[in-house]
């Protein structure tokens, strides 16, 4: 899975939680939860979806490393 495919997978998971999201409008370097209206439950469901899809376990303590879409993709890449 290359970075584009990984990004597509993350965005697909995001759209499951927030269907209104347009993948092209997302800026990979801006904080994700500012761009998409995600509350803590949405966020958890998003991470749960990634866990189911990719098998990556993300501890709460790592949340600060997952601010932007780019960071999420990088974090997952390192653990796949």
């Amino acid at each position: 899975m290359d970075d584009t495919e990984l990004r597509d997978a993350v965005v697909a998971e995001l759209r499951r939680i927030a269907p209104e999201v347009d993948a092209d409008d997302l800026d990979d370097r801006r904080p994700l939860r500012r761009q998409v209206d995600l509350d803590s439950l949405d966020w958890l469901r998003f991470l749960l979806g990634l866990h189911d899809r990719l098998g990556v376990e993300i501890p709460e303590a790592d949340y600060p490393q997952l601010s932007t879409l780019g960071e999420v993709v990088g974090y997952l890449r390192a653990r796949l």
């Binding site: 803590s40 991470l47 376990e57 501890p59």
Partner: peptide, 11 residues
């Protein structure tokens, strides 16, 4: 939460 998998996390 730290002691549990993500599927059992509570908010």
């Amino acid at each position: 939460n730290a002691a549990r998998p993500i599927t059992e996390r509570v908010l």
